[in-house]
């Protein structure tokens, strides 16, 4: 008897297939884990793909030291629960130079994240890295392959991608080259939320609304996750107000805009997302620097 698979079943099967191909055909895979909702789904899929074995690769968190405290907490908990090794990498040079989101603007992302990622991959010698990017996030992502090849210097050439036919992935690479693999390429934001809901996947509580200390900066609303540190770096203590807020996307706390919201449960979050009129990445400051083609430019330089 035949039965029609649901779209989530098909997406899940595809992602699991991709992960198994990578494990079978690469020497030293790693999963980039950013602790966000997309990472949460990716990690869950990895656990399903290899069960009853634990996923046969470590988790790598490229840390900027500016993430929300709740993110660090969930990160450690999930690594523990999945039985996977957790590697945390912080760019020492950025640390020594005191690079921060206030004084250094785009350099903060560049040094902590872009450079930090490259250094981490080189440091551990990983030849394949899973990332949680989705094609529906942004226009240049829509054209990225599931297996994305990077030169020895981690560059991406959008004109020189390998065609991907059927579910056949060519994972062969020459020495020094590495692959970034996006197993949830074909998932949308709604798919991610729905999958989290159906599978009870733990996510950072910041996605749900609660009363939190906030401040305004350059017209956007932020959460004062570490007020003392903010004061030290900004040179003055920002004016703090309690508000009911939540986050649609998570990154460094001084760079991630909050939204005022009353959505306290997953269905309420999904409801708010469906009725909302602005796209997910609007809360992130990062896409706006460099104008129109900023993400494409960042990727050519090696950003995930």
């Amino acid at each position: 008897m035949t039965r029609t698979l649901t779209h989530l079943e098909r997406l899940e099967a595809e992602s699991i297939h991709i992960m198994r191909e990578v494990v079978a055909e690469s020497e030293r895979p790693v999963m980039l884990y950013s602790v966000g909702k997309d990472s949460a789904v990716m990690l869950h899929l990895a656990r399903k793909a290899f069960y009853p074995s634990p996923p046969p690769f470590p988790l790598l968190h490229v840390d900027t030291t500016w993430k929300f405290q709740d993110m660090y907490k969930l990160r450690d908990q999930m690594a523990n629960e999945s039985g996977m090794e957790l590697l945390v990498y912080q760019n020492q040079e950025a640390m020594d130079r005191g690079i921060n989101p206030f004084d250094h603007g785009p350099l903060h992302t560049d040094m902590w994240k872009t450079e930090g990622l490259k250094m981490a991959l080189d440091h551990y010698g990983f030849d394949a890295a899973f990332g949680g990017a989705r094609r529906d996030e942004e226009k240049s992502r829509a054209k990225e392959r599931i297996f994305s090849f990077r030169t020895a210097t981690h560059g991406w050439d959008p004109k020189n991608q390998r065609p991907e036919l059927w579910n056949l992935y060519n994972a062969r690479k020459t020495k020094g080259e590495s692959i970034r693999i996006f197993p949830i390429s074909n998932w949308t934001e709604l798919d991610i939320w729905q999958y989290i809901h159906l599978n009870d996947i733990p996510i950072v509580p910041l996605y749900f609304s609660a009363k939190r200390p906030t401040y305004e900066y350059q017209g956007q609303l932020f959460m004062a996750d570490d007020i003392d540190r903010l004061e030290r770096v900004m040179g003055k203590r920002p004016e703090i107000t309690e508000r009911s807020i939540r986050f649609r996307t998570l990154g460094c706390f001084p760079l991630t805009g909050a939204v005022e919201s009353d959505a306290k449960t997953l269905p309420e979050v999904i409801q708010e997302m469906l009725l909302t009129t602005t796209s997910e990445r609007q809360g992130r400051v990062i896409d706006k620097d460099g104008g129109d083609a900023s993400m494409e430019k960042k990727k050519q330089e090696g950003y995930f």
Binding site: R135, D136, S140, A142, K143, N186, T188, D292
Partner: peptide, 26 residues
């Protein structure tokens, strides 16, 4: 029309994937 190079030339040069859903299907 995604990539910067294409927008300048006004053409699409590669396969791009888009997503939408109705009440019956994704």
């Amino acid at each position: 029309d995604g990539l910067a190079a294409e927008r300048e030339q006004g053409i699409t040069i590669d396969v791009a994937y888009r997503f939408f859903a109705t009440e019956k299907r994704k």
